[in-house]
Amino acid sequence: MRIAFLIAPEGVEQVEFTEPWQAVTDAGDSPELVSTEPGEIQAFNHLDKADTFPVDRTVDEVSPDEYDALVLPGGVANPDALRMDEKAVAFVRGFFEAGKPVASICHGPWTLVEADVLRGRRLTSWPSLKTDVRNAGGEWVDEEVVVSGDGAGTLVTSRKPDDLPAFCSTLVEEFHKAA
């Protein structure tokens, strides 16, 4: 399976990117880092700069048709930047329109809010997104991992880095079910 990881040029929470990346790699899948700009992305450990990672392709070069699933890591600045990029938002929306699985953790659902794909879905996120999720028509819950099959495609969500073990195993399982 080819899995797109959509990440802004800076602001992703490193562990919310690297652990799911490793989980899909360990499952025998092929992850690709997609961003809004070529070059490298700058990851963060909370508010401190962490490592940089090479961008495989930009949103200008890709289509959801090329991938089997999508992962949206968190970090406060990452999804906030993505939601301001029309091509990134359209890329995310395309996965839902195609009925393909999507996984998002922490602040990642901000991009889902902007893509207007949460109506009627049950999900979780970092608690500060609760009102945004509800205003976008989603049902926000405080749970470690939530799998929503309400609507086109499966949506897997988690709240925070502490939820990564459950998030990673669940996203791999759900992605493979959909294959």
Results as ranks from 00 to 15, higher is better:
residue 14 Q to N: 11
residue 56 D to R: 02
residue 77 A to G: 03
residue 9 P to I: 06
residue 124 T to E: 08
residue 136 A to K: 03
residue 135 N to P: 08
residue 144 E to S: 10
residue 38 P to A: 14
residue 125 S to I: 03
residue 118 L to F: 09
residue 23 A to Y: 13
residue 105 I to P: 00
residue 73 P to I: 14
residue 157 T to F: 08
residue 41 I to Y: 01
residue 151 G to P: 06
residue 49 K to L: 10
residue 30 S to Q: 07
residue 153 G to I: 13
residue 30 S to M: 06
residue 52 T to D: 06
residue 80 D to S: 13
residue 102 V to M: 04
residue 17 F to Q: 11
residue 37 E to M: 01
residue 176 H to T: 14
residue 148 S to T: 10
residue 4 A to C: 08
residue 138 G to A: 08
residue 134 R to Q: 14
residue 10 E to Y: 15
residue 40 E to R: 14
residue 69 A to G: 12
residue 158 S to N: 10
residue 165 P to G: 10
residue 135 N to R: 11
residue 44 F to N: 03
residue 62 V to D: 07
residue 136 A to F: 05
residue 141 V to W: 11
residue 152 A to W: 00
residue 105 I to D: 01
residue 70 L to Q: 03
residue 122 R to C: 05
residue 114 E to S: 14
residue 72 L to D: 04
residue 121 R to H: 09
residue 78 N to T: 06
residue 107 H to K: 12
residue 128 S to P: 06
residue 35 S to F: 07
residue 56 D to H: 07
residue 31 P to Y: 00
residue 55 V to T: 14
residue 168 C to H: 03
residue 6 L to S: 02
residue 26 D to E: 09
residue 105 I to Q: 02
residue 140 W to C: 00
residue 137 G to L: 02
residue 59 V to L: 12
residue 68 D to N: 12
residue 138 G to I: 10
residue 22 Q to D: 10
residue 172 V to T: 09
residue 49 K to Q: 09
residue 104 S to R: 01
residue 117 V to Y: 06
residue 157 T to C: 04
residue 88 A to Y: 02
residue 99 G to H: 11
residue 24 V to K: 00
residue 140 W to A: 05
residue 125 S to T: 14
residue 158 S to P: 02
residue 41 I to A: 01
residue 6 L to W: 12
residue 106 C to E: 00
residue 103 A to S: 14
residue 155 L to R: 15
residue 141 V to N: 05
residue 120 G to P: 08
residue 28 G to Q: 13
residue 125 S to V: 09
residue 95 F to Y: 06
residue 119 R to E: 14
residue 52 T to F: 05
residue 16 E to P: 07
residue 173 E to K: 15
residue 172 V to M: 12
residue 25 T to C: 00
residue 13 E to Q: 11
residue 18 T to S: 15
residue 153 G to Y: 02
residue 83 R to M: 10
residue 44 F to M: 04
residue 103 A to R: 09
residue 167 F to Q: 11
residue 74 G to T: 05
residue 2 R to V: 03
residue 42 Q to S: 15
residue 172 V to R: 01
residue 77 A to P: 00
residue 17 F to V: 15
residue 87 K to G: 07
residue 78 N to V: 06
residue 147 V to K: 12
residue 76 V to Q: 04
residue 90 A to E: 13
residue 54 P to Q: 05
residue 33 L to K: 07
residue 111 T to D: 10
residue 169 S to T: 03
residue 122 R to A: 04
residue 2 R to E: 15
residue 49 K to R: 15
residue 173 E to H: 14
residue 10 E to S: 05
residue 93 R to L: 01
residue 41 I to R: 00
residue 73 P to F: 04
